[in-house]
């Protein structure tokens, strides 16, 4: 059973402040630590070192080692401690150095955290948050560059979110923490330095709700994380040619926002899914299928298209690494062909 917790409200001020994606995450964690004494941070090198990507940075100095805990180099052990702590009343935020290393902790995430509420008849909850730096583009090669959203999205009992902006990085992390069940937050490594206006104080971004980042009438692109930005760049270029692309930021892989996607495809009749994970059996397959099964089917005016990661481990060579995942030019080409009825 989870202990009752005392939550100190930090009221939203209505103001915004420019901060980076990493700063926004740190801000969310600081607010969580301030307002809820049961929140603890765990992970390898998140204390004195400040985290593999310097996201926790100085939080250990501000909140002390009882609340910002370095865990041993054992993802399975650390994740197990986090799940156990969540079961017994704490709200841990567990950071993996790279989402790739979550493969070492699958037992705790998939077989324990995701299952216990169900297997114990609703008598237990596991309000843990796993933060996972993900994605390619940093030259970190095959074992440090993967995109596992679809893996975890396949597991009932988990929620999976992918913020693409500093504002969402903070809002979705706080929403993940407020959620009574385990939530995986995929943070894209290339976005950590991205700046944006972020509301100060406490707020949450709803899990399971996509965001329309650009409206358009000719083609719908559903993208997530870094791909949202590449899609927006492609859309801006295509707008010069008179092609109006609607860009949907998926934000949440599980649960997925069917309504927003269906409404958009009914409007445009053309769908392009862009995601960094391996193309086959990926998030785009799910989106394609849900459209094919929905009332939007009768509005399709072209075959659904997917742009996903190559069917290969992410290469170390920078050119090959770029070629292995969708880039702006790829998105532009496919969206243009879709809009022109050439697909």
């Amino acid at each position: 059973m989870n202990a009752q917790t005392q939550i100190t409200e930090v009221t939203p001020s209505g103001e915004t402040r420019e901060m980076s994606y990493a700063e926004a995450i740190r801000d969310a964690m600081a607010i969580a630590l301030d307002r809820d004494p049961t929140v603890v941070l765990m992970g390898e090198d998140i204390g004195t070192y400040g985290g593999a990507f310097q996201v926790t940075l100085d939080l250990i100095d501000r909140y002390g080692p009882d609340r910002v805990m370095d865990t041993p180099i054992s993802e399975l052990g650390g994740a197990g401690v986090a799940v156990g702590a969540a079961l017994t009343g704490l709200k841990p935020i567990f950071e993996f150095q790279f989402s790739d290393f979550a493969a070492l902790a699958m037992e705790q995430i998939v077989n324990q955290a995701a299952k216990l509420r169900y297997m114990l008849g609703g008598e237990a909850a596991v309000p843990v948050v796993f933060r996972m730096p993900a994605g390619s583009g940093t030259g970190a090669a095959a074992q440090h560059s993967q995109s596992f959203e679809a893996w975890f999205g396949h597991v009932p009992g988990l929620k999976v979110v992918q913020p693409s902006t500093p504002e969402d990085a903070k809002g979705l992390l706080l929403a993940a923490l407020a959620d009574p069940d385990p939530v995986i937050v995929f943070e894209h490594k290339l976005l950590y330095k991205m700046k944006g206006q972020v509301p100060t104080g406490y707020y949450t971004t709803p899990i399971g709700k996509a965001a329309i980042r650009r409206t358009g009438s000719d083609v719908t692109i559903v993208a997530s994380a870094i791909m949202v930005h590449r899609a927006l760049e492609a859309a801006a270029k295509l707008a010069e040619e008179g092609i109006e692309v609607e860009v949907i930021d998926l934000r949440s892989v599980r649960p997925i926002d069917r309504d927003t996607i269906i409404a958009s495809v009914k409007k445009t009749g053309k769908l392009l899914c862009v995601y960094e994970g391996v193309r086959t059996l990926g998030v785009g397959a799910e989106i394609s299928a849900l459209i094919a099964e929905s009332e939007a089917f009768d509005y399709l005016d072209a075959p659904i298209q997917r742009l996903g990661g190559a069917e290969a481990p992410i290469p170390y060579n920078p050119d090959l690494e770029r070629a292995a995942v969708p880039q702006k030019a790829d998105i532009e080409t496919v969206a243009r062909r879709l809009a022109k009825g050439e697909v």
């Binding site: 009749g269 089917f297 009768d298 005016d301 072209a302």
Partner: peptide
């Protein structure tokens, strides 16, 4: 048999 049309065209 060999008619090709998109779903929206058919609808």
């Amino acid at each position: 048999a060999d008619l090709r049309a998109t779903p929206v065209a058919r609808r």
